[in-house]
Structure formats: structure tokens, C-alpha cells
Design a binder for these strands. Structure first.
Lengths: 149, 149
DNA sequence: TTAAATAGGACTAGAATGGTCCTCAATCGA
DNA sequence: TCGATTGAGGACCATTCTAGTCCTATTTAA
């Protein structure tokens, strides 16, 4: 199914809520209330996004979270990476250690291309695109052939 | 990590081996020996591919498996679907049942676009492309804006 | 000083995944 | 006809991963 984890899904929901008024500080509890996601889970996700330098946190009373960058500068690819690590379809695409497959590994190079293609697609969509349903994002072409050298 | 299951990875290895001489019938045991994947696992994958009408099987002595279509006509998207079901990043993209998120669901439409984009990318790469490392696949453009109405 | 928030990590239950195995059915060839 | 070979179908298990919860420490505003 090529699935994205539930947490990543939640993250996009949370981030798009925050993107609506990006200069406002939001507490975890507020976000939980608005999105309907349980507080501990929201909290966990927010911490991950802070670690990924995607959000900035303020501790203490009146504290909370705020976007570190403009919604236009936060790509879906970045969100996925923050929650799930590097975007790659296959194991070998990440760690280039020896893979034990006897004959199959000449495929790897091409998997790299597929990964690249998908990465480009995800990179081209930003939080801003997600929050504005009818908006047309900037034109992005992904000519497969250009990925081959 | 946006990961593909190991079985799907294996499937591509198996299929590319079979694509090398596509008119030959290959037994599961032979494939296991060549690819280095354990026989029961190979067997399981082959059965799935048969169910997906991607391979044709012959029972009995001298039996085995053969590609149902030409390598050029088998897309990576089809392989993934065969092993993992419909390609979709989020749950809601598959079953359009009500999703309980209070405010986040205006995002859904745009997730659909991302899914479509990725699907197109995977659809545009075929088994033939995977087996010929240096080959340039047919030019495929994926203008994001065209996906919006 | 107290209340409100986040930081960091441990922990658990449940689901999914990868992998194995067994029995039945079909086909070929001697 | 019979036996060997090969796939079909499904049950099954162990391990890993995921989602989700909770606890304690730290920071800050009032």
C-alpha cells in the first residue's frame, strides 16, 4: 500500500492547522482540542517536529509551538522525513552496505531513480499547498528522463 | 521512511530475473537458487503475482511460472499493487468513509493529488526499465498543476 | 512560589510483517 | 498406471513495528 504512518498523517493535520495563523503560538492542548487527536499523541508529534527544526518551542506558562519557517518553505517531503526518517522505498537505498542478493542488485540503480522521482514529487508540494485546497501550486515538471545522466 | 515492504522488494528482484528471458518457464526452486531468497518465501510471492494476473503458472512436472505480459507492459505500480494492495499514502485515500478529524479534512483533497502524482511516477517505470540500467524510459512529464481542476 | 507548559524517555498492547510448513491438486514421463 | 515433480491454498508462529500512554524533570510567566 506504500503507506505513510498514522503519525505522519497527524503531523500534516497539525501543521496545516498551525499554518493557518503562522505567527501565533499554539499550546499542545489547544492543538489536541482542535484536531481531535489525543493530547499525548499530539505532544509526541510536536516534539518530533521540534527536533526536526520544523517547529520552535517555548517552555513555561504561555509557552507553545510555532512554525520555524513559512508554510511555503515547508515541503511534504520534509514532514515525512521528520517523522519517518529518510524517504526511500527500499532498505538498500538508505544504507549502501552490501546487499546479499546474488543477481538482483543491478536493479538498485534504477530504484534510486524511482526514489528520486518520488522525492521530487513530495518536495514540490508544500504546507501552503495543502492548506489552500483550490490553489494551484507553482508549476513543477518532473521529466523522468532528466534523472538519467 | 515511506517504505516498501520487503516482499515487494523481492518481487521486483524476481520479476527482473524472469524478464531476462521472458519466454522461459521458471520453477520456484530455480528462482530461489538464483536470487538467494528462501524457497517458501519465493513461493509465496509467486503465488501473489499469479493472483494478480502478472504471472501465469503451470502445475505438475516441468511446470513453473512465466510472465503474463511483456516487461514493457508491467509497471512498478502494478507490482506494488499486487503485493501491497492499492497505492495510497493515507488511509482515507482508500476508503472514503467518514474520517473523524474535526478540522483537518480539507487536506484530504490535496493528499489525493500527491497520491496521484506518486502513482503516475510509479506507473511510468516498467520492468523493462528496471532490467536495463542505462536505458532511458519514455519521456514522462508530471505537471503538478494539471492535476488540479 | 505556584501554575502552566514543554523535554525526554520508558513502557505496553496490539497489529503487521516476514517467514515457514503442511496438505491437496495437477501434470509429465517411464 | 504410477510415481516424481511442481504449484495452490491456507494455517501458523515469531519478531518487529506502531500507536498510544504516562511519568518525571525543567522552564517560565504571573
Amino acid at each position: 500500500m506504500l503507506r505513510l504512518s498514522k503519525l505522519t498523517d497527524y503531523a500534516t493535520v497539525i501543521l496545516s492547522f498551525m499554518a493557518k495563523d503562522e505567527i501565533q503560538v499554539h499550546a499542545a492542548m489547544e492543538i489536541a482540542a482542535v484536531t481531535g487527536i489525543a493530547l499525548p499523541t499530539v505532544s509526541k508529534i510536536l516534539k518530533m517536529l521540534v527536533n526536526a527544526k520544523m517547529l520552535i518551542s517555548t517552555r513555561g506558562a504561555k509557552g507553545g509551538y510555532i512554525l520555524a519557517r513559512m508554510p511555503e518553505e515547508i515541503s511534504v517531503a520534509a514532514v515525512i522525513s521528520a517523522l519517518e526518517g529518510p524517504i526511500a522505498l527500499t532498505e538498500c537505498s538508505i544504507s549502501h552496505q552490501s546487499c546479499e542478493q546474488a543477481s538482483g542488485c543491478d536493479i538498485r540503480g534504477n530504484w534510486g531513480l524511482i526514489n528520486q522521482t518520488i522525492h521530487n514529487a513530495l518536495e514540490s508540494v508544500t504546507l501552503a499547498d495543502l492548506t489552500r485546497p483550490a490553489a494551484v501550486p507553482e508549476e513543477v515538471m518532473i521529466p523522468l528522463s532528466s534523472l538519467y545522466r
